[in-house]
Design a binder for these strands. Structure first.
Lengths: 343, 343
DNA sequence: TTGAAAGCGCTAACAC
DNA sequence: GTGTTAGCGCTTTCAA
């Protein structure tokens, strides 16, 4: 623990009040006094004790992120990590701390209640919304500013969110494949209890419907997004009597597995079959498929994290404003092994 | 903000002190009084304000994790996420918060200083140690309990760490390949500015040396661990006049790329070439390579996170004890597409 | 422009 | 066993 305000004040022969005011930019301080105080603070390596400050102001200057982990699988969604990295940047720029609560799904509600009741945070970011997510009404009841990364279909009352336009992204991707002449298009999707996956399927169905194609349930696979899942789905799809000629993959890692199934079957991407990958982060894309021709829709999760954090901070500063929302569009990328073009 | 101690006390007709004592398990409280207090607390949904508590006790009951991000690439090492998930479990079990500081490499030192000076945390976890990592002496100077996930070669004074036995893991894997009769063994390693990657190379070299084989620099590739890197390295290695017959991959994602290069070249894993993968997390392994025969060394990062957090908490509770260290051994897994056996 | 005093919600001597 | 008092480090009236 370093030097305190009081010590700093007595060193300077000033009152704690004046020092506080000088340091916090209150206008009524003599310019020379302020300068003197600032210099002394720097020299003494003074940092205000954040908890004392919080206690006095009633604000914690911290934002809570609760990330649910299932006990069934050990892997944390890498998307969380990138999003949190982006959010963290915004927080530290604004002088806020980020407190992370990692909890088993079962204890999630208690985690939110705790965070709020103990006054640990001024606002909360909600991750991985499911359909009709119960956390949204809960947080509203608790009266704490919050922001959802994604959306929850079935929640009617307005709330603040930032989402990627998953539906549009998958609609466009499907349309693209339809334009290439494909009629049997497979969807290798994430877990459809998650809101984002459900929206992706809707986008896919939108495009099919518009083209007058009846969706075939056999062409739609859904599971947690892993390489093995991509592979298994690919195999199963190729084993169909009437296999698809085009594939839509819900993440890069799934696409890796899918590609394996396709190439193992002797198919060449971009010639025998077409593949479009969607990934939430552009960074996963470069040369990712490394074939003469592939297509991808993507966005930057880190950027999303930054933006979402800024919106949440705005909410924290003025809790009475109406909900903030932002729908981010994805980019459609046409890539080859040497570089890529965007459309 | 909920009900306060004072309010709760006056409701009960007791002094705040008694209520505090009852709730915090002090022995000198009448059993019936305690019961009454506990019931009332539950009924009123009382949660102590953590900042007031911290201020009064001088402890923050929070642990800081600083995760460095480079501005050059957007992807956060997924290992961080799994480790943090494990650590988070231990913290919440112990009633501690986790504060995450995501900072660009350049500002890392300032981040540590801030965390300590502002009294935000009681202890710090250091991620991704590099060779001769300067953070270790810094934290020692700051006098804050800390724990390193990994080790830093070249730091002589003792410090607390938890690490996976990377050297032994890669040594065993190499020996295994040597036993199979391979003499040209490629190493597709992570960035060797990172301590773990350097140790992995040492293990590889250990085994070669013991077998009397002169290491060939052309067989050692090092870069950030991505699928494209695995692919590029694989291609380059196969293009050699005297290509390797066995490969050691430093992570599952690298192995995916490597496998692609190998199969594209018409080689069959487990027959024409042997591949061993090391990954820090077992979870990434199941069916991961999905070939008739492959080998993997792995550990559980989540479990490492749990353990490391517990060790750090022990350090926080008794800062005067000698440094705590733990070297976790990896498991050698022989896998096939249907299941796996461990040795 | 500066200072004195009270208080944020809790804990911890020290009395009773 | 329980209460009184002071204080953690800061902000914020209010007065000067």
């Amino acid at each position: 623990m370093g030097v305190t305000l009081k010590e700093l004040a007595s060193t300077l022969g000033l009152s704690p009040t004046t020092v506080s005011r000088a340091l916090n930019g209150y206008p009524e301080v003599n310019a020379r006094t302020r300068q003197r105080v600032q210099d002394a603070a720097r020299a003494a390596n003074y940092h205000p004790n954040i908890r004392a400050k919080s206690l006095a102001t009633g604000q914690s200057r911290a934002i809570g992120h609760v990330i649910p982990i299932s006990t069934s699988h050990e892997i944390v969604n890498p998307i969380f990590a990138d999003f949190i990295a982006g959010a963290g940047e915004s927080y530290s720029r604004a002088g806020y701390d980020m407190v992370l609560s990692v909890v088993p799904d079962a204890e999630e509600e208690a985690a939110y209640r705790n965070l709020v009741a103990r006054g640990s945070v001024d606002g909360i970011m909600v991750h991985g919304p499911r359909l009709q997510d119960s956390r949204i009404p809960l947080l509203r009841d608790l009266g704490v500013p919050f922001m959802v990364h994604g959306r929850s279909s079935g929640v009617s009352a307005p709330y603040s969110w930032l989402d990627i336009n998953n539906r549009r992204s998958f609609r466009r991707a499907t349309e693209f494949l339809l334009d290439l002449g494909h009629t049997r298009i497979a969807l290798v999707n994430g877990l459809e209890t998650m809101d984002f996956a459900m929206r992706r399927r809707l986008g896919y169905l939108d495009a099919l419907q518009e083209a007058g194609i009846t969706p075939d349930p056999a062409l739609m696979h859904t599971a947690e997004m892993t390489e093995p899942f991509g592979h298994d789905a690919g195999r199963a799809l190729l084993a169909l009597a009437d296999p698809p000629s085009a594939f839509l993959a819900s993440s890069m890692i799934v696409a890796y597995g899918l590609r394996r199934a396709l190439t193992d079957a002797g198919l060449r991407l971009g010639r025998d079959v077409s593949v479009i990958v969607h990934d939430d982060d552009l960074s996963y894309m470069p040369n990712g498929l490394d074939v003469p021709q592939f297509t991808a829709t993507c966005s930057s999760v880190r950027e999303a994290g930054r933006k979402a954090a800024e919106m949440l901070l705005a909410l924290v500063r003025d809790p009475d404003q109406p909900p903030l929302t932002l729908l981010m569009e994805t980019q459609l990328v046409l890539g080859d092994s040497t570089g890529r073009n965007r459309t």
